[in-house]
Design a protein around this nucleic acid. Structure first.
Lengths: 248, 248
DNA sequence: CGGCCACTTGAGCGTACTCAAAACGCGTGG
DNA sequence: CCACGCGTTTTGAGTACGCTCAAGTGGCCG
């Protein structure tokens, strides 16, 4: 939370940049539109790319309780979404990389329930809400968006389950999740860079950053991983997975 | 979890009962269709009510990893949905009462990701998946379902946040959530019956049932609530709410 | 090089868990 | 109607895990 407030600067200049490649030429189209729906391309093509925005580390894509004005697709970089708790603290509810879609959780409502902050330099495609609504008149796109929503429920539901787990299980879950996401994007599943701080990981997992650090050190002492700052090398994936199978 | 397995009997006889009132006459229509979408009634009317099922305490409406064959609307009674964790344990992800819609979380996929168990005698409307898909061709219904999905994300996201909280905060959150849900349904927000066991509450909140019991006793000792078994009387709503505001 | 921030590691403490026993509620059968 | 038995709930005592507080290290940028 300290890290949230310290980099809580506001981004207001969502600018059009027509020089950038359109969705059809974008390397991420498989991620944004993973089910091969040609209609989606055709209709999204002229609509979605009206706006493209760049964010620097710490800038908000949108704040919680901002009016919801659009749907966002991450083109490059990393962001996290966070919600406010009754006690005034912020809780990180998700980390997002290229190909993820943000803002769907507020679809029915007037305002964003979560805020989205850039963790590094980001590029985000903006689909204005009215255009998005028009897009949804096409049945295939409507199905696609429902699938995205259902997958988001699955993701959050799975994350809610970490509340039951021990610290070792939580951190192991987190590493395996990161591993899988990097693999999905065509990178190594055993060697990657954590794009968030220990504080953010702790917030996300419901642990203190000291416990996250200690647990990572513990895994390293077991020779299951090697950590140097944000660089992670997984040496024994099976051992991490078996951590999930039994209590700490 | 012990309670899950002990009452894990299977219900196979989903029977049609045309004698029961249709959606338009059902007292729950406001809950199922809260946004006043007349189209929804008209199209759902002939489709949804083909099947109606009754469940007894402990029977499954559907199991996790069952093929997804339909969407379910709770007409009477209480259910809970639960997911399997890697360690083989079951985690309760939600409690559901009359008016709630179940099965939406698996929309994109082939199988149910969660199972649904009756906590008492239930009556559930079944909308077969193919009919549901047809229903979604109507834009208004499509919007409504997207809103239901977005609300489900909001609910689960909020629940995921309890992983951060202390035991007192978790139990207070739970009581206030129950209170609100009873109020939404037109009942007293200060006097109601918990329709699940302490074990289930603990599972849901990521606590042991002893801790749940102890915390309820603690609240009672503070004269904030009175508990007799499953009967709860909230005497100081404000005190419970202020529990959320600061650490235990 | 200095300063700052993120991270690591240590020591002591407190909350929630584990193990355990007893009371209670409820349905069944004598 | 009461006795019995089972499952649920309450309460207690001791333990362990993760938190708090604190000092020290490392890396990055001005």
């Amino acid at each position: 939370m300290a890290s949230l407030t310290s980099r809580a600067t506001r981004n207001c200049d969502i600018a059009t940049d027509p020089a950038q490649p359109a969705c059809g030429q974008c390397a991420l189209d498989k991620l944004c539109f993973p089910h091969g729906l040609p209609n989606f391309y055709q209709t999204l093509f002229p609509l979605a790319l009206e706006k493209r925005t760049r964010l620097k580390r710490g800038e908000f894509l949108f704040h919680a309780s901002d009016a919801q004005t659009g749907i966002y697709a991450v083109k490059a970089g990393f962001l996290m979404t966070c919600m406010s708790l009754p006690d005034g603290q912020s809780k990180i509810v998700g980390f997002h990389a290229a190909g993820d879609v943000l803002g769907l959780d507020s679809l029915g409502g007037e305002i964003h329930r979560t805020g989205a902050i850039a963790l590094n330099s980001c590029e985000v495609c903006v689909i204005p809400l009215d255009k998005f609504e028009k897009l949804l008149e096409h049945p295939a796109e409507s199905v696609h968006v429902r699938q995205l929503l259902a997958r988001e429920i699955a993701r959050v539901e799975t994350h809610a389950a970490v509340g039951t787990l021990s610290a070792k299980q939580r951190v192991a879950t987190f590493l395996l999740d990161m591993s899988e996401r990097w693999e999905d994007r065509g990178y190594s599943k055993t060697e990657f860079v954590l794009f968030m701080s220990r504080l953010d990981i702790g917030n996300f997992l419901g642990l203190t950053f000291e416990t996250v650090s200690r647990t990572l050190s513990y895994f390293q002492s077991k020779k299951w991983i090697t950590v140097h700052g944000k660089n992670v090398l997984i040496q024994d994936l099976t051992a991490l997975q078996s951590q999930l199978k039994r209590a700490a």
